[in-house]
Design a protein around this nucleic acid. Structure first.
Lengths: 149, 149
DNA sequence: TATTGTTATACTCTATAACTATA
DNA sequence: TATAGTTATAGAGTATAACAATA
C-alpha cells in the first residue's frame, strides 16, 4: 500500500520532478507491456509513430523531437527497417539526410500499436477523470516543449 | 525551434506518456546539472531526501517508494555511506532490515541540495504559472501513486 | 568549414536470478 | 517457507568522440 507509506510525509512526495519520474516509470512499464505482443517498445513505437502519416522526418528531426541521441536513432531505425516497418530514403534536397518513412506493414503495425498504447495510457491514468487527463496533457505539453540547452 | 517542428502535427505530440517521458528527460537533465556541484544525482538525492528528517526508512521501503530495484538501492546507499552522508542501522525489531538514516553531514548536504533541486524545478517549469505548477503537482501525484502490479 | 548519419565506446539505469542471514 | 539485503550479470537507455559523405 504505497499510498499509506510513511515516506509520503517527505518533501520528496511534493517534488514535481520526482512525481514526473515516478509517473513516467509506471507509464513506460504499462505501455511496454501493452506493446509487447506487437514486438515494439516505447522508443521504437515513438519512432514508428513519426514515420507514419506522411510526415517524412529525417533522423535528425526524430532525434530532436524524441530527445534521443542521433546514434540511438540509428539503432532503432535499424531494427524497424530490419522488421520491414520503415525504410530509409535519401533526401533529394540534401543527400546527407535520410528520410524515414513507414512501409505498408509499418502503417498496419502502427494502427494496432495505437490501440495498444491508448489502452496503456488508459490504465496508467486510471486515477484521473477525463477532464483531469486533458488538463494534464495541456500542462505536460507546455513543460515537454520548453526549449532547453 | 522545437515548437515549430512539423512533427508537432503527429498524434504522438498529444500522447500523455510521450509528453511525460519528454518532460522527465528535460527535468532530469536540468536537475542533475543543478546537483552536480554537490556530488549528487537525481537518484542519490532522492535517497538522501528520504533518509533525512527522521523518517528512518528501510531499504525495502526506499525501493518501493522510489520504484527502484532493491539491488539498486544497495549501490546508491553504498555511495552515500562512503561519502559519509548516511549510515545503515540494523532494525532491532527485524534484524534482516537495515534502516537508512542521514548523518549530520548528510542533513547539511541535503539542505543545500534542496535549494539546488528547487532551482532546477523552477527552471524546468518556467513555462508554467504558479497555479499551473500546483495543478500539475496534484495531477502527477495521483498518477505517480496509482497502485501497479 | 559545418552537418548528417554512422560506428565505437563507456557510463548510467533497469531487471533477474542466486546467495546469506534472519524470520 | 518466506523475506531483507547483497552480489553478479545482462540488457536497455544515455552521452561522447571520431569518421565518411555531403553541403
Amino acid at each position: 500500500m504505497i499510498e499509506n507509506s510513511p515516506l509520503m510525509a517527505s518533501g520528496l512526495a511534493r517534488d514535481i520532478e520526482f512525481l514526473a519520474a515516478r509517473a513516467r516509470s509506471i507509464g513506460t512499464l504499462i505501455t511496454n507491456a501493452h506493446l509487447a505482443g506487437l514486438d515494439l517498445r516505447v522508443r521504437s513505437y515513438s519512432v514508428l509513430a513519426l514515420a507514419c502519416g506522411g510526415l517524412s522526418p529525417t533522423q535528425r528531426e526524430l532525434a530532436e523531437f524524441l530527445r534521443l541521441d542521433p546514434s540511438q536513432i540509428v539503432s532503432i531505425v535499424d531494427q524497424l527497417e530490419n522488421d520491414g516497418l520503415v525504410v530509409r530514403k535519401t533526401d533529394p534536397a540534401d543527400r546527407r539526410s535520410k528520410i524515414i518513412v513507414a512501409t505498408e506493414a509499418g502503417e498496419a503495425r502502427y494502427s494496432e500499436a495505437v490501440v495498444a498504447a491508448r489502452a496503456g495510457e488508459n490504465e496508467a491514468l486510471a486515477a484521473l477523470s477525463p477532464s483531469e487527463r486533458e488538463d494534464l496533457r495541456t500542462l505536460l505539453h507546455k513543460v515537454a516543449f520548453t526549449p532547453v540547452e
